[in-house]
Computed example of a mutant assay.
Amino acid sequence: MTVPLASVGCAQATRLSVIVPVLDEAPAISGRLAALHVLRQRGAELIVVDGGSRDATGDLARAVADRFLVAARGRATQMNAGARAGHGEVLLFLHADTTLPAEADVLILQAVAGGAWWGRFDVTIDGRHRLLRVVERMMNLRSRLTGIATGDQAIFVRQDVFARIGGFPELPLMEDIALSQRLRRLARPACLRARVLTSGRRWEENGVVRTILLMWSLRLRYFLGADPARLAVRYGYAAREP
């Protein structure tokens, strides 16, 4: 059954919920969320879910979000909390360091109105290193061929479909891959060629080649059944001291 969507460009109902998980994002959060104001003007709602920030992220986000929530730390847990609070017919999961194309909401709603159950955008990695151009091309091609999306590609999904599969598996890492696997069993994604811009900071700080090899290794180990908690530690996630 297709979700009944109001005509694209009409703000009669909340058709899109933008869910942004955050953690200690104070230096950049105001600008990132302000960039979503045009979507809110066209009827989208902005839900920010904090994972226990220790800086001014909460105060800054409250000032510009339609809803501000606090959930247990972890992108999957935070995004599931945002999805439960969302009123939109379509959910868009957006990393705090990713910028959408200007007409993202229109493109998403057109894709869903055309029959898509879920999808993602192509990605550009913000950075000057030549290898980043290769990385982003490979990410986009791999996603198009396999039907697997990453969180950096701004995954969107009909709310009824998201509920049907039980939301994000609450894993400390690879939650985007696990969600894609669940969704792919139902339908192939809409692979939108419009590009989101995502931060290349981790790539440049840790070395592009080193990061490529690390991500390949982590994904291979995940597909072979490795414990996501161990993979998260290897990726650099660490438990916070109380």
Rank of each mutant, 00 (worst) to 15 (best):
123 V>N: 05
73 R>W: 01
114 G>S: 14
81 A>N: 07
31 G>M: 01
73 R>Y: 04
113 A>H: 11
92 L>T: 01
43 G>Q: 07
113 A>Q: 15
108 I>Y: 05
95 H>I: 02
74 G>I: 09
127 G>S: 08
54 R>L: 13
42 R>K: 10
116 A>E: 04
62 R>V: 03
48 V>R: 01
91 L>Y: 04
104 A>L: 09
96 A>K: 00
45 E>P: 05
67 R>V: 09
79 M>N: 11
50 D>P: 06
65 A>Q: 11
69 L>H: 03
80 N>A: 11
71 A>G: 08
109 L>H: 04
85 A>S: 10
50 D>S: 03
121 F>T: 04
87 H>N: 14
88 G>A: 07
94 L>I: 14
80 N>Q: 06
86 G>R: 03
113 A>S: 15
110 Q>Y: 03
126 D>K: 09
129 H>C: 10
81 A>S: 10
100 L>N: 03
75 R>Y: 06
65 A>M: 07
98 T>M: 06
46 L>C: 03
114 G>P: 08
32 R>N: 04
98 T>S: 10
29 I>E: 02
61 A>N: 01
76 A>R: 05
107 L>E: 15
28 A>N: 13
107 L>H: 09
27 P>Q: 11
57 T>N: 02
39 L>K: 03
116 A>Q: 04
48 V>W: 02
106 V>K: 14
33 L>F: 00
31 G>S: 06
127 G>H: 08
43 G>I: 07
120 R>H: 15
67 R>G: 00
31 G>Q: 05
39 L>R: 03
63 A>R: 12
48 V>E: 01
128 R>G: 15
119 G>T: 14
54 R>G: 12
86 G>P: 06
33 L>P: 00
51 G>A: 09
29 I>V: 15
36 L>C: 07
112 V>I: 14
122 D>T: 01
111 A>E: 14
47 I>G: 01
104 A>E: 08
67 R>F: 00
69 L>G: 01
57 T>K: 00
58 G>C: 15
47 I>S: 05
105 D>P: 07
28 A>E: 12
123 V>H: 06
92 L>N: 04
57 T>E: 00
89 E>S: 12
81 A>V: 10
99 T>D: 00
87 H>I: 02
95 H>V: 01
92 L>P: 02
127 G>E: 10
84 R>T: 11
122 D>F: 10
33 L>I: 00
112 V>L: 08
86 G>N: 12
89 E>D: 15
110 Q>C: 04
118 W>D: 09
75 R>M: 11
129 H>N: 12
93 F>H: 08
124 T>M: 07
79 M>V: 12
74 G>F: 09
62 R>F: 01
29 I>K: 03
38 V>R: 12
50 D>N: 04
46 L>W: 06
31 G>R: 01
125 I>C: 08
47 I>E: 02
43 G>E: 09
83 A>M: 15
77 T>S: 15
105 D>V: 02
82 G>D: 10
69 L>P: 02
70 V>K: 06
57 T>Y: 00
71 A>S: 12
128 R>D: 12
128 R>W: 07
35 A>I: 05
103 E>W: 09
58 G>Q: 11
127 G>Q: 09
43 G>V: 12
106 V>R: 13
126 D>I: 14
79 M>E: 14
122 D>W: 06
30 S>F: 00
60 L>P: 00
49 V>I: 15
56 A>Y: 06
33 L>Y: 00
44 A>W: 05
36 L>V: 08
89 E>T: 10
99 T>E: 01
124 T>Y: 11
50 D>C: 07
90 V>T: 12
46 L>Q: 00
